[in-house]
């Protein structure tokens, strides 16, 4: 599948933003984070900026962005519509909770509970847009949803860690959570890649054409001499050697370096701020690489009509 930069940025940034809001408010709800004013302002600002920038960028790949409001209407059947509704609905409890946190230095539990639930559900809805597409086996499987949650909460956890260090919250809890989330996300990504490397797909050129009854099916002549929309959008291919390099970058940047940096930050409190900045930035680079691969490695069954043998 063609890796559209607007969608890669949107899913990475909003995943981190929603996870940061969810984590920060979850911990505050159970009394493990103080409702400190400046920490609150920075946390909400960072989370909401990431979300808003992501949502705005997601409208860039639309053919008619001025009609984007219509996308809130079909939540009964469409995960994309559900995601839109949830994404925008999250602003309400986020605004109310932020108000209490910043002006009264209190956690208002009702909006905070809604905020945690909606933010987490929005990440799930984003994942389900892809996981629900039967045409793309590499998305339509049990790994996609955990993958989005894992990557989102790993980024969000690292952000929270950095904010904790910035505002000198002495609790080691954000760091421990970040370590746990990054490790879990790495485990899920390992499982996801093992699955896509071993799965051969459900459809073949034989089932796509129904000509499998005669033997192996090969494309003899394409319908046209030049690329069409279908091939540009769904026939995107990435070279195997680039995949290997990009996966190494993901392992290193999204998981390994942040993990080491957070552990070092726990051991060397004087350097912790700088180490955590490194952790957040490399994780962002790793997450974007992971998301690029998530699209670029995905194979669509329509390619079976254009020479692919299985998808």
């Amino acid at each position: 599948m063609y890796p559209a930069y607007s969608v890669i940025f949107f899913t990475s940034a909003s995943g981190a933003g929603y996870a940061l809001l969810a984590l920060m408010n979850m911990l505050a709800l159970i009394g493990l984070l103080p409702a400190e004013r400046w920490f609150g302002i920075t946390g909400f600002l960072a989370g909401l900026t990431a979300i808003t920038a992501g949502l705005l960028s997601s409208t860039y790949h639309l053919g008619r962005p001025e009609r984007a409001w219509r996308a809130f209407s079909q939540w009964r059947s469409s995960w994309l519509s559900r995601e839109g509704v949830l994404a925008v609905a999250t602003y309400l409890p986020a605004g109310i909770t932020a108000l209490g946190w910043v002006f009264w230095e209190q956690i208002w539990w009702l909006p905070a509970v809604f905020l945690v639930a909606l933010a987490t559900t929005t990440i799930c809805a984003t994942a389900m847009i892809y996981a629900s597409l039967k045409t793309i086996r590499r998305w339509n499987n049990g790994w996609t949803l955990p993958n989005y949650l894992g990557m989102g909460f790993a980024s969000g956890g690292l952000w929270l860690c950095l904010l904790g260090s910035l505002f000198a919250l002495s609790s080691p809890l954000p760091a421990l959570l970040a370590i746990a989330f990054v490790a879990i996300a790495a485990g899920i990504k390992f499982g996801y890649w093992r699955f896509v490397d071993t799965d051969i797909g459900r459809s073949t050129a034989g089932s796509a054409t129904g000509l499998g009854r005669f033997g192996a099916v090969r494309l003899f002549a394409a319908p046209h001499t030049e690329e069409n929309y279908l091939l540009k959008e769904m026939g995107f291919k990435v070279a195997r050697k680039h995949v290997a390099t990009l996966r190494r970058i993901t392992w290193l940047c999204a998981f390994a370096i942040p993990l080491v940096a957070v552990i070092l930050a726990l051991l060397l409190p004087t350097l912790s701020l700088w180490l955590l900045i490194v952790a957040v930035l490399t994780n962002a680079l790793g997450t974007v690489t992971e998301r690029w691969l998530f699209f670029a490695e995905a194979r669509h069954v329509v390619t079976l009509y254009y020479g692919a043998e299985a998808a």
Partner: peptide, 22 residues
Amino acid sequence: DFCIGCKLCSWACPYGAREFDE
């Protein structure tokens, strides 16, 4: 008149029946 051109329907179609008009 309602389509926003998000292309998701073309992703959902296994048969390549939907094309985006740039």
